[in-house]
Design a protein around this nucleic acid. Structure first.
Lengths: 160, 160
DNA sequence: GCTGACGTACTCGGATAACGTTTGTCCGAGTCCGATAGG
DNA sequence: CCTATCGGACTCGGACAAACGTTATCCGAGTACGTCAGC
C-alpha cells in the first residue's frame, strides 16, 4: 500500500497558501519546495478541481485557498489527490468456488470487508480531525513564530 | 492508495486454514476460492516467510497455521502481504528550497509527517484488534454454525 | 510375516515475462497588466 | 491630464510519453508416501 507522492507536496502547498496574502503561481510554489513545476501543477489542478483552491489567470494570477485554513482538513486534501475509493476492494470471493454462497445471502458485506472498512474509516477520521490551520500553527510553534510571515514575504518579494 | 489484491485472498485462506484439520495444499485453496493457483502460491509464500503458516512438503503436504487462530491478527496478515512500510513516506520537503530548514533543526518529524503517522497507527491498531478466530466466528454466526465444518470436509474429501 | 530400500508423485520455492498505474513532461487556450496613442 | 485601446507576457488547463510496481506464470529442488524385494 503506497500513497501517491503528490500528497505530501499538496499538503505543504496548502500550508504555504494559508500564509499567502496574494495569489501564488504554481512556479513559485515549485521553486519554494524545489520540486518539478510541471508535476506540481498537475496536483494543484486536482486541488482546484476538488474546490479546495481557486485559480486566477493572467499576469499576477495564481492560487489561493477558497476557504479559511481552519475549514480545510487534511482528509480533504488527501482525497483530492488520491481519490476517495477505499484501499481495500472486496471482490466477493465468498460467491466463487465450489462452496460459493448464494448472492441472495450476501446482502451485508462479509466479515473481512467489514474489518477493512472499519480500519479505513479510522484512518480517514484521524485525518479529518486535523486542519490546515493546525498544521500552520504547528510550523509556527516548532520552527519559530514568524516563519509563515517570512514565507509570505519570500513569495511576494523573493527576500529570505 | 490501493492495497494489494492478494490481501483479500490471504485473509480468506487463513480463515479456511483455521478450520482445516490437516495440511492443505495451495492448489486446494486456489480451487476452493476459484483463483489463479500460481499467483495464490506466491502470496502463501509470503505468509510462510512471515511465519504465520507452516509448510510441509511431500505427498500429503500443504499449509497449516503455526499458531491458534486467536493469536493471529488481521494486521499480521496484511503486513505479511503488503509490507510494513507506512503508506506515507516523508521526503523532508522542509529541508529543500530557498528557505530550507537546517538538518539540525529537524530532529523531530514535521507536523505533516506526524499527522500521517498517527492516521497510519490508527489504521493498524484497528486491524490489530481483530483476529482470524474472530473472522471465523463471524462466518459461522452469519452463514451458519456448521459452515467451517463443511469447509473442512470439502478440503479433505471434496464432498459439498 | 516383517523390514529395509527404492521409485514415484506430489509438494513448495524462487526466478521470469506482461500489464496497468503512477510519475513526469510538454504545448495550447485564456486572461490580466502595462504601455501607448488619442481626446 | 485623463481615458480607451492595443499588445505582450504570464497564468492555468488538459493531452501526451516513460518508468516503476503489481499481476500473472512457469519450471526446478526437495520430501513424504506407497510399493516391492529380500530376509
Amino acid at each position: 500500500m503506497k500513497l501517491s507522492g503528490g500528497v505530501e507536496w499538496a499538503l505543504h502547498c496548502c500550508v504555504v497558501l494559508s500564509a499567502a496574502t496574494e495569489p501564488t503561481p504554481a512556479t513559485k510554489l515549485a521553486e519554494f519546495h524545489d520540486v518539478s513545476p510541471s508535476y506540481l501543477a498537475k496536483h494543484l489542478q486536482s486541488l482546484s478541481g476538488a474546490g479546495l483552491i481557486h485559480s486566477t489567470q493572467g499576469k499576477s494570477g495564481g492560487y489561493l485557498l477558497t476557504r479559511p485554513a481552519a475549514e480545510i482538513t487534511v482528509l480533504q486534501i488527501v482525497e483530492a489527490i488520491d481519490g476517495t475509493t477505499p484501499a481495500f476492494r472486496c471482490t466477493e470471493v465468498r460467491q466463487r468456488g465450489p462452496l460459493a454462497a448464494a448472492p441472495e445471502n450476501c446482502t451485508v458485506p462479509c466479515g473481512i470487508a467489514r474489518v477493512m472498512a472499519d480500519a479505513d474509516r479510522a484512518w480517514r477520521e484521524s485525518l479529518n480531525a486535523v486542519t490546515v490551520a493546525d498544521l500552520a500553527d504547528d510550523v509556527n510553534s516548532t520552527v519559530g513564530p514568524t516563519t509563515l510571515t517570512r514565507v509570505d514575504r519570500w513569495l511576494r518579494t523573493g527576500a529570505p
